[in-house]
């Protein structure tokens, strides 16, 4: 049973296997050297040679390059931690308003600004050199930019509504004396109504009048109730307005900062989309400068 057919149909031989293994060993040893030499540019190339070729070198290779990154894929967290050092330095000048917190090995939260109650804005992916913005936060910012061109703010409607509610409540509280007078009048009318001894053909009308007066009185006492809860409601609304204007203040600071660094939201987006290329080109320039020395 150990007889093999003479010719290997896959033309496998040890030298091919050995060369494949050597390539892998070389890959890992290159990666290791690049880490040790602090050559992040090379690390990025080794991690994704195809993206590197097209986006950084501007090449259009006919055939995809062989990628061995799966050999080190389980070390992503460690690699990310290593790569984040230089990347965050670079981002510190291009995106001076972002702050990062490494909440787990190689994992970074992005904070927009370092002002009071700054927003957590998503995560930094150091391996792929990209921001993964938190969708809600990013969308609100985009909306804020969009509304700004129409001279509006994200929370305008809500704030206006709360403001109007408070005006109404204040009015209700102020009108208490008026209502008290009105209630007194109605009570008097009810008493007069009850003292009437109508002719049978008028009885229906008197009864109807009585009902109307009762209804009017009930409506006024209902309003009284709203007014008596008014102060607490006003305070609650004021707190909400404060929270909303805090949000607006934050959006404003974010927009100001983006404009100061990029000129416009569009330019910011554009830079985000080309971050990989821009960062690696800057690394490449840096290494040429140091090589030249």
């Amino acid at each position: 049973m150990d007889n093999k057919i003479e010719n290997d149909p896959f033309s496998q031989n040890d030298s091919i296997l050995s060369s494949a293994l050597s390539e892998k060993v070389k890959y890992l040893s290159d990666l290791n050297d690049s880490i040790k030499n602090g050559n992040d540019l090379k690390v990025y190339e080794l991690m994704d040679p195809n993206r590197f070729a097209t986006e950084v070198k501007g090449e259009q290779p006919d055939q995809p390059k062989a990628s061995f990154f799966n050999l080190a894929a389980d070390l992503k967290a460690q690699l990310s931690h290593h790569l984040s050092n230089k990347l965050i330095d670079y981002l510190g000048t291009t995106y001076p308003f972002f702050y990062y917190h490494e909440y787990d090995l190689g994992k970074f939260n992005i904070y927009f600004g370092n002002w009071w109650d700054h927003r957590m804005f998503g995560e930094l992916d150091a391996i792929n050199v990209q921001f993964n913005f938190a969708e809600d936060e990013y969308n609100t910012l985009a909306k804020s930019f969009e509304l700004e061109s129409q001279n509006k703010r994200v929370n305008d409607d809500q704030m206006r509504e709360l403001g109007q509610k408070n005006e109404k409540l204040t009015q209700l509280i102020e009108d208490q004396t008026k209502r008290d007078q009105r209630k007194e009048e109605i009570r008097k009318q009810i008493k007069e109504n009850e003292e009437k001894s109508p002719m049978p053909w008028e009885a229906g009308k008197v009864k109807e009048e009585h009902q109307q007066l009762q209804d009017a009185l009930l409506e006024l006492t209902n309003i009284d109730e709203q007014a008596s809860d008014g102060r607490a409601a006003i305070k609650k609304n004021e707190n909400q307005i404060l929270a909303l204007s805090k949000e607006e203040t934050i959006y404003n600071l974010e927009k100001q900062n983006i404009r100061a660094s990029f000129g416009s939201f569009e330019a910011f987006i554009d830079n985000n989309n080309n971050l990989y290329a821009k960062y690696l080109q800057s690394l490449s320039k840096e290494s040429q400068v140091t090589d030249g020395e």
Partner: peptide, 21 residues
Amino acid sequence: PEPILDELFVKSADNKYILMS
């Protein structure tokens, strides 16, 4: 409570000062 600092943040920003965390 936090809303009190929120208020300082908003009032500062209205006056061109930024309350930092």
